[in-house]
């Protein structure tokens, strides 16, 4: 299949791949049938690089993150593909093996607006818990000392670590969550909408911080957002997702400078300037197709300006624009 060759086609760097996702399909058993939330996506990530996954809500980007963590809900199921992390397939791992791996090697930055911190535990305790879970022999004072160090790294006053989450502002909570993600020196961090619901200034600060930390610590980052301007800000590579599929993939410069897929273009058009005021996604007319019984052809064709009749019938193929830039569309070469 084309997707596989395209996925392994990034050979512009000698750094080894930390993560390789190959033809991954994930779905949920629902009352209406099996919902294919993620349908055959492939990408790879090198050490120290960052990948942005962007798309509307419901496109499957969060499912990708949860699958990488092995945290699918009980009705979720990986239906195919591999997730090679440091050469080992995460899909095959047992729950116990995944527990050891979580946070220690793959950590997550949750959205602070969500109740991601336990409201009745002190912040220091929650971060120390992550450290102690993966280093049970460490004395607790040592773990707390590390928490203090982490607070410095994310520019939070050290004495605030004794507080409860509700005593923090939104921005502080987000920093604490970032500190928690760094607690075990992971190789990969998945950030799922980490700045949503923060005001613009704080949002900017947090993004800068994530970027700086990622550079300093050489951590690989998968940045998930519905906001393409934010993704552009922090990611080396960008994957655009639509209705469970990756529809365009390439370096930031390629995807922004030369967007090929009509969905990518629509997304970009809804954000006037990259540095400009954040505003809500201008809705693209039409609805996302059902993921229980997806159409056989291109999934975007109903909403696409350039769609031809063939689009809705034939399954689109990957087109390689450059060795690092590919797009899932039959008609995109013309532009």
């Amino acid at each position: 299949m084309n997707a596989r060759t395209a996925g392994t086609g990034n050979r512009n760097s000698e750094a080894e791949d930390l993560l390789e996702v190959e033809d991954l399909s994930v779905g949920y058993r629902t009352k209406r049938g099996f919902m294919r939330a993620v349908d055959g996506i492939s990408f790879s990530l090198k050490k120290g690089r960052s990948l942005g996954l962007v798309g509307e809500s419901g496109c499957g980007k969060t499912t990708v993150g949860m699958t990488l963590m092995g945290l699918l809900p009980p009705n979720g199921e990986v239906r195919g593909g591999r997730i090679l992390f440091k050469g080992e397939d995460l899909v095959q791992k047992t729950e116990e093996e995944m527990q050891r791996l979580r946070w220690n090697e793959i950590a997550m930055i949750f959205q602070a607006a969500m109740n991601a911190l336990n409201p009745v535990q002190r912040v220091e305790k929650q971060i120390a818990e992550a450290i102690l879970t993966h280093a049970p022999d460490l004395p607790e004072e040592e773990a707390l000392r590390r928490v203090e160090g982490l607070f410095q790294m994310v520019n939070l006053p050290g004495e605030r670590m004794h507080d409860y989450p509700h005593q923090y502002s939104g921005g502080m909570k987000q920093r604490a969550i970032i500190a928690m993600a760094l607690a075990c020196n992971p190789d990969l961090i998945i950030a799922d909408e980490p700045t949503t619901a923060l005001d613009v200034i704080v949002q900017h600060q947090i993004l800068e911080e994530i970027k700086a930390l990622q550079d300093d610590l050489g951590i690989s980052l998968i940045f998930i957002s519905h906001d393409i301007s934010i993704v552009a800000d922090v990611s080396h590579d960008i994957g655009v997702m639509y209705a469970g599929q990756l529809v365009e993939y390439g370096s930031r410069e390629e995807v922004f400078g030369d967007p090929r897929h009509y969905y990518t273009r629509a997304l970009l058009a809804s954000y006037p300037t990259l540095a400009g005021e954040k505003r809500d996604l201008v809705p693209i007319p039409g609805e996302t197709p059902s993921l229980v019984a997806p159409p056989s052809g291109c999934r975007f064709c109903d909403r696409c300006d350039a769609a031809a009749e063939a689009c809705s019938l034939e399954r689109p193929d990957w087109l390689e624009i450059s060795p690092t830039h590919r797009v899932l569309c039959a008609r995109c070469l013309s532009s």
């Binding site: 963590m69 791996l101 979580r102 946070w103 109740n115 336990n118 409201p119 992550a130 879970t133």
Partner: peptide, 10 residues
């Protein structure tokens, strides 16, 4: 959500 966080922590 904090239950998810706890699980994610391993």
């Amino acid at each position: 959500d904090y239950i998810l966080t706890a699980r994610a922590k391993g």
